[in-house]
């Protein structure tokens, strides 16, 4: 114990409290805020707007040969509402990949069976453009 306190005393460093009027906020704080704002804008900018995604998805689906364009609504189901089979659904998901310029992995693509799900996945994907 004694040895420990001697050691600690030896190690003690003079610590001055920071003066209160130091210019922390104006120089360092500001530039940090700017960097943070730029970064968050960049991240936000890479996600597409949900309504824009919906419009483009609906347009792609309407273009599909076997579909009656008047039946396509933003919450239609590929199988029940639009009368498509699983092969057609794969085709539509491929067409969406082409439209938005990114690859949808197989396990995600298998889950997409409504326009709503497609919109949700694409809007939450940073690489969609």
């Amino acid at each position: 114990m004694a040895a420990r306190s001697v050691l600690l005393k030896h190690l003690r460093v003079n610590a001055k409290p920071l003066p209160h009027n130091i210019n922390l906020n104006s120089s360092f704080g500001l530039s940090f805020n700017v960097v943070r704002r730029l970064f968050s804008e960049e991240v936000r900018g890479s996600f597409l707007d949900k309504s824009e995604v919906t419009d483009r998805v609906v347009a792609v689906v309407k273009n599909f040969q076997k579909i009656d364009p008047s039946k396509v609504t933003p919450n239609a189901h590929f199988g029940n509402g639009l009368g498509l089979d699983s092969l057609d659904t794969v085709e539509i998901v491929m067409a969406l990949e082409e439209e938005f310029g990114f690859e949808i992995p197989d396990n995600e693509a298998d889950k997409i069976n409504t326009i709503g799900l497609a919109v949700e996945f694409i809007a939450s994907h940073p690489q969609a453009k």
């Binding site: 699983s86 092969l87 794969v90 085709e91 491929m94 082409e98 690859e103 197989d106 693509a109 298998d110």
Partner: peptide, 12 residues
């Protein structure tokens, strides 16, 4: 379905 998708993807 995976084979179908691979074929379409490669075709592209």
């Amino acid at each position: 379905l995976s084979l179908f998708r691979s074929l379409l993807r490669t075709a592209h």
